[in-house]
Design a protein around this nucleic acid. Sequence first.
DNA 1: GATATATCACCCCTTTTGGGTGATTTTAGC
DNA 2: GCTAAAATCACCCAAAAGGGGTGATATATC
Lengths: 208, 208
Amino acid sequence: MSNNLRIVIIEDDEILRKGYELLLSDVEDFSIVNSYGSYDLAKKQLKEDAPQVILLDINMPGTSGLQAIPEIKKMLSNTHIVILTVFDSAETVFEALNMGADGYLTKNASSEKIIEAIRDVCNGGGVMSINVARIVMHSFQKNLNSPLTKRETEILKRIAAGQTKTQIADELFIDQNTVRSHVKNIYIKLDVNSKSEAIKTATKNRFI
Amino acid sequence: MSNNLRIVIIEDDEILRKGYELLLSDVEDFSIVNSYGSYDLAKKQLKEDAPQVILLDINMPGTSGLQAIPEIKKMLSNTHIVILTVFDSAETVFEALNMGADGYLTKNASSEKIIEAIRDVCNGGGVMSINVARIVMHSFQKNLNSPLTKRETEILKRIAAGQTKTQIADELFIDQNTVRSHVKNIYIKLDVNSKSEAIKTATKNRFI
DNA sequence: GATATATCACCCCTTTTGGGTGATTTTAGC
DNA sequence: GCTAAAATCACCCAAAAGGGGTGATATATC
């Protein structure tokens, strides 16, 4: 009993919260030590709860789940956070991962997936449900209709990496003037007239 | 029969290739139209094969799977590519996704997963197996031990986005001298003395 | 053979950068 | 409440990089 996996649920929808509680307390080696309707309600007691895993909703009254992540991480550095939410925009996913979430499941995840995810994060894994993976994957796929040539793309990538034209010229074994020439063409094609604009436009359109 | 899902397998290991063939040809609405031991062997006939899905290995004699992706995409724009490989370094995964792969499975994926993945990509989804998801997730998680303060991180992010100190000062409503001051501290903390080095170091260590 | 791409050359001037040395005010941790 | 860290601003300097203009040439690619 004492070696059970300690779990806390933070979810404002009472039906869902009770549902998760029921589901997870049925698992032999899981212990639901507490469940809360918001992070604000949870935060004073989390230290005492000392959970290994927190199932965290994002959309909650008061402090949002995203804001809560760094606070939890600070307070309980060894606790794994699994986001369990309906939100699945690319921005939300990335922000959650950036904040330090160990997993991101959407609420249509099956019981087995949730249980599996809890075990996985405890073993140092990261977990995401398939539709989240889909979002992440798509956000990586380059725009195939880039107006930039191969060389121009190469150069713009390096500019985005902070390299100067001199460095780029050296590393590509071409003249600085050639780099300048490419950069000019890049600016024309992207309809910009500075480095930052070029990076912004190219990033937004996934040309690099 | 004519409405069957047309699949091509490109995999140099004959045992595996035959195994996949056997597995997938058992699925009612799947048709293995062809299978090849390398992309070089496949490329002349792929157009004729007109597959909806290609299962593609990465490590193959001749043209690698990664190099093959853009070629396939160009030749068969509506064909979905699912990488099926033992390689699962973050770089490889990202490169494959960047090249335009629609899925990335590792070879320990179960039969059901592979079949599910094939159906998923045909429905416009992206697919990744759990260990790949793990890699992707970890590569997103910021280094929590960054020596940089919040403000310094903010400023370095903007420098990485190609903004000049003037622009940064304007957008953050602070003086250019303040930005300069922060940048100097950033350089000291990262032990670098130029923009590009700072971006490189910070990116490598996931400080930004 | 025409068009796109990649390569290089020289002009101009303005902006940015990086280094140095300082100070003041907030903010945050103990 | 004290102390240290962080954030803010000021002014010096010279070198580097940036951006705009206008060209040429070779090599692909179609």
